[in-house]
Design a protein around this nucleic acid. Structure first.
Length: 321
DNA sequence: GTCCAGGTCTTCC
DNA sequence: GGAAGACATGGA
């Protein structure tokens, strides 16, 4: 007799060393929102002496076809969906709750900048996203602030995604249209849906010159010229080259997709923040060429370089706040 | 009004 | 192979 699993709408994920706020707010994903009345601190793990932990804090977002509410509690993460779920593998995989974070952190270089970055956002995880949403989001990211990427992705989802069932107490937050929260109530539009649109449909989502890039990527996928599944099994360099065949996808965006969607932990996206961080933290006194900087990034940070990169990225951004 | 944003591509030296 | 400019749009 096969064991019967009762579908549920709630799941408790026991996990230590997981900073949900830092993870969802570190520029990997663009459709997660702290819930009104459930304030989320940027770093749950920084607790001052004598100060009670600011728990719980909830976030709402979409993973694949599921609307999800996640709440950080002291010994893990509580998840809630609108519709009963039999198998929660998709959520564990997305959140990477079963990853041995301590083992990853041990591989980081033992230097002052990395120690400071880890101290600032320990518990930050690199998520495992669905490749198409990740690729599309980062095609839309070039020379855009994170807040604007959220707006564009939200508009795109609202207009061309499918409405999702939400828990009954989920309300569209005030100002949601401005900060993109409403878009989290829809699925991310499929490549097939995008491929059937026109460039002006997409430009109406405020994505500007990125519209033809997104359209072309969607059409390559629906035409069978690009298979996002096979990229998973390629060696890193081949996977990177495959993604970079797409117009509007250079090394940085390819590295983001490799790291955030496919789990290539050594992929090291170099954007303006990371370039600034590397120059300030590692080469404060001399001007190094961009090429040397890339070589340094590719060789210095170890097998989980991309993970180290995400710690540096979030550390630099929160330090500036 | 000006500068700049999780870049990429083309042109020109 | 490296610098400079174009590309849309909006927040700060």
């Amino acid at each position: 007799m096969p064991s019967v699993i009762n579908p549920t709408t709630e799941l408790f994920l026991p996990v230590r060393d997981y900073d949900l706020a830092a993870t969802l707010n570190s520029g990997q994903v663009f459709r997660w929102h702290p819930e009104r009345g459930r304030p989320a601190r940027v770093n749950q793990n920084v607790q001052l002496a004598g100060e009670p932990p600011a728990l719980p804090s909830s976030w709402t977002g979409v993973v694949e076809k599921h609307f999800v509410r996640l709440t950080q509690v002291s010994d893990g993460i509580r998840a809630e969906t609108a519709e009963p779920v039999e198998n929660w593998h998709w959520l564990r995989n997305f959140l990477q709750t079963e990853l041995d974070l301590t083992a990853v952190l041990k591989t980081f270089p033992d230097d002052e900048p990395m120690r400071a970055a880890v101290a600032a956002c320990r518990g930050l995880r690199v998520l495992r996203q669905e490749p198409w949403e990740c690729l599309a989001s980062f095609i839309l990211s070039s020379t855009k602030q994170i807040v604007q990427i959220r707006q564009i992705v939200s508009l795109l989802s609202e207009r061309f995604g499918n409405p999702l069932s939400c828990p009954s107490d989920t309300l569209s937050p005030p100002g949601g249209e401005r900060d993109g929260a409403r878009g989290a109530l829809f699925s991310f539009p499929t490549p097939q849906k995008i491929a059937g649109l026109t460039e002006s449909d997409l430009r109406a989502c405020k994505m500007g010159f990125r519209a033809p890039h997104l359209l072309a990527a969607a059409r390559q996928i629906t035409d069978g010229k690009l298979d996002l599944d096979t990229i998973r099994s390629l060696p890193l360099e081949e996977a990177r080259a495959e993604l970079m065949k797409l117009r509007g996808v250079g090394g940085k965006i390819a590295d983001c997709v490799l790291l955030f969607a496919y789990g290539f932990d050594s992929a090291f996206p170099v954007d303006v923040w990371i370039e600034r961080a590397l120059r300030q933290l590692y080469f404060p006194r001399r001007r190094v060429s961009e090429k040397k900087l890339r070589h340094f990034a590719a060789t210095y940070f170890g097998p989980h370089a991309g993970y180290a990169q995400q710690y540096l990225f979030h550390y630099m951004r929160t330090k500036m706040e």
